[in-house]
């Protein structure tokens, strides 16, 4: 597939945003359960949620550029929510703004200090508006993760994508980068949660490394169901395209090919493996030792850049069966 930068930014930005939000709520739950020190509503949760919202907004902007024309965002995008019964994309288009609303509400509640306790669960965990909204947000975030990932994973003939690993990857990459960002945010704010978030970030990064490794292994060995023989209905082992019927390219030659050689592909792979999985962990470990406030930020930045490459690679490695029909200019 042709990696579109709009989609790369969209998925990585909202993934990090969702992860960050889940990190915030996790932090809140932990502190409510007194497992962590409580944090300031305004400066930490509200700020954190605003960062989330910014990331989501960034994703939205990227998404606008994925539309045929940006103006469609205003004139037509609302239609995109109409097919939620069948379309994962439609579901994403619903989940994303709802999630954004919840995130903004969460920020508002924290900012305005509407944190009166409504009741306590088992006498231990006090439940307030922020927690309810936070939990709803987490739920919506999960739905959004699943929707986004299923956009890809549901396309059964894109065999590289059509696997639960795609959902796991999107989820874990989101969590890893989100928790990484939470750690960075904490470090930046000088809050003591760096190792808490950092620890989870490492856990998710390792898990993501495992699921991604599985998916890469799977994809390397994938046996494509469609062949030229099935595409044409001609039973023969040696079929070559002589002409695709036009010479100056078409939508079909632009949208479904990454257009890069194997070297670029291998470089992208190395780049993301190092930047997503290896360097951030090292940086976090280093920051732990050095108690640096900037290294976790660097770790996030590095990981995010890695994720851009990962997402690029994710598209590039998917081989669309339609390409069987578009192999030779002649």
């Amino acid at each position: 597939m042709h990696p579109a930068f709009s989609v790369i930014f969209l998925t990585t930005l909202i993934g990090a945003g969702q992860g960050l939000f889940m990190a915030l709520v996790t932090g809140q739950v932990y502190s409510l359960a007194n497992l962590l020190a409580p944090q300031d509503s305004q400066s930490f949760y509200a700020m954190g949620a605003l960062i989330t919202a910014t990331l989501l907004a960034g994703g939205l902007v990227a998404a606008v550029f994925h539309l045929g024309k940006p103006s469609y965002f205003i004139t037509r995008a609302w239609r995109g929510m109409s097919q939620w019964r069948t379309s994962w994309l439609s579901r994403e288009l619903i989940a994303l703004p709802m999630f954004m609303l919840l995130v903004l509400a969460y920020a508002a509640v924290h900012y305005l200090g509407w944190t009166q306790i409504w009741f306590t669960i088992k006498g231990q965990i006090p439940v307030d508006a922020s927690l309810v909204i936070g939990m709803l947000g987490v739920l919506m975030s999960v739905i959004l993760f699943v929707s986004t990932a299923m956009i890809y994973a549901s396309l059964k003939f894109l065999q590289e994508w059509h696997t639960a690993l795609t959902v796991a990857n999107f989820f874990l990459f989101g969590l890893a980068s989100g928790f990484m960002l939470a750690a960075a945010f904490s470090a930046w704010m000088g809050i003591e949660l760096v190792s808490f978030f950092g620890g989870w970030a490492v856990v998710f990064t390792v898990l993501a490394a495992i699921t991604r490794a599985f998916s890469m292994l799977r994809n390397a060995r994938i046996k494509h169901k469609s062949t030229l023989a099935s595409a044409l209905g001609i039973r023969h082992t040696k079929i070559t395209q002589r002409s695709m019927g036009f010479m100056g390219g078409s939508f079909n030659t632009r949208e479904f090919f990454h257009g890069q050689g194997p070297v670029v592909l291998a470089m992208a792979r190395w780049f993301f493996v190092l930047n997503v999985f290896v360097f951030p962990v090292i940086l976090l470990a280093a920051s732990n030792l050095l108690e640096s406030a900037s290294l976790p930020v660097l770790a996030f930045v590095v990981q995010y850049l890695g994720l851009l490459a990962e997402r690029w690679y994710f598209f590039a490695e998917a081989r669309h069966p339609q390409n069987l029909y578009y192999q030779t200019v002649g």
């Binding site: 539309l67 037509r76 239609r79 079909n252 029909y325």
Partner: peptide, 22 residues
């Protein structure tokens, strides 16, 4: 809205985005 998703979902490569009307 020109999101191209349908074209990804077609295994036959027969949908074409009109690059002018989008």
């Amino acid at each position: 809205i020109g999101c191209k998703y349908c074209s990804w979902a077609c295994p036959y490569g027969v949908r074409e985005l009109d690059e002018m009307q989008k």
